[in-house]
Amino acid sequence: MTVERIALRESQLLIEDGIAQFSHQRPAARNALSAALRLDYPQMLDRVESDPNIRALVITGEGGSFCAGGDLKSMRERHTSANPQDRAPDGMRRRLLGMHAWMERLHSLEVPVVAAVDGAAMGAGFSIALVADFILASSRAVFCMSFAKIGLVPDLGAFYLLPRAVGLPMAKELALTARRVDAHEGQRLGFVHAVHEPEALLAEAMRFARRFVAGPRESAGLTKRLMNQSFETPFRALAEMEAQAQGIASTTPYHLAAVAGFLDGKPSMFDWDRNQA
């Protein structure tokens, strides 16, 4: 068993048995999204994207919080900075565009992404959870589009991600009221996949992610890319993209081996219902 542990600025990347685990490591600040933590995301993505042996990514937070959103101390420092550029609207715009660049990469990552949410997923932390393909939450997890509480608009892709997760009317309610949603309500609304006790959450998230290891990496990536574009792409264009993707998938070694195995009476290499260990 090979384990690779990479200490980043304010996070840690652990790679083991085909699963990458990225953990926010600012527990004293409830893993608020500092400038250093924001810089860790593209570095993590560089490593994950470059390794075809990684079959799933789990994102989590240390110390009972997933991510409490933007770092308010940093915001106050910018507001009181002697440098006019720090306070300028264009400064905020550029910072956010920089974050959007790695959020788009995370959204398009061609392996399943699992968010293991314990405790707070507030503001931008909620957006990071929503960009995952699956959210597994602890029974004490709390989600909140908290931006209105400090006079801001939702960010980090929330205007794209939230309506697709819960529908437009509910997205408006959550954004305009900034009310808190617990794990069980999140499950009823459809954006939480499963709820576990806090002490079991990470193990369950890793077990869930491990079930993808035997799966077809190429077709999983193609499926994600097409699904991510399904709401804004016309039928004809999406059908053309589907045909092209199927042309690629049908020539992969995985597909050829799977067909041959089926015809020879062998068990499927990827069986979600069977591979629950």
Rank of each mutant, 00 (worst) to 15 (best):
M1P: 07
V3L: 12
E4G: 02
E4L: 04
R5L: 08
E10V: 00
Q12E: 15
L13E: 00
L13D: 02
L13V: 00
I15S: 02
E16V: 03
D17F: 02
A20G: 07
Q21Y: 04
Q21V: 14
F22L: 13
S23V: 10
S23M: 13
R30F: 10
N31H: 00
A32V: 00
A35E: 13
A35W: 06
A36H: 09
A36P: 02
D40P: 04
Y41I: 14
P42F: 05
L45H: 12
R47F: 08
V48Y: 03
E49F: 07
P52T: 05
R55W: 02
R55T: 02
A56P: 01
L57Y: 01
I59S: 09
T60I: 06
G64N: 07
S65Q: 01
C67N: 14
R76W: 11
R78S: 14
S81E: 08
R87K: 13
A88I: 07
M92H: 11
R93W: 10
R93F: 13
H100P: 03
E104Q: 14
E104S: 13
P112G: 04
V117C: 13
G119S: 07
G119V: 10
A121W: 12
A121S: 12
M122E: 09
F134L: 10
I135H: 06
I135D: 06
S138I: 10
S146F: 00
S146T: 05
G151R: 07
P163E: 01
L168G: 03
P169C: 05
P169W: 06
E173P: 00
L174C: 08
A178I: 07
R180M: 12
R180N: 10
V181E: 06
H184N: 11
E185M: 11
Q187G: 01
F191P: 02
H196L: 12
H196F: 15
H196W: 15
L201P: 08
L202M: 13
L202T: 08
A203W: 03
A205Y: 03
M206K: 15
M206W: 07
R207S: 07
R207Q: 11
F208S: 01
A209H: 04
R211C: 09
F212W: 15
A220V: 10
G221S: 01
R225N: 13
L226T: 09
M227N: 11
Q229W: 07
E232K: 06
E232M: 09
R236E: 14
E240D: 14
M241V: 06
Q244I: 12
A245F: 15
Q246M: 15
G247M: 05
I248E: 14
I248P: 06
S250P: 00
P253D: 09
G261W: 00
F262R: 10
L263I: 04
K266L: 15
M269Y: 10
M269F: 11
F270K: 05
W272N: 04
D273V: 13
R274T: 05
A277Q: 15
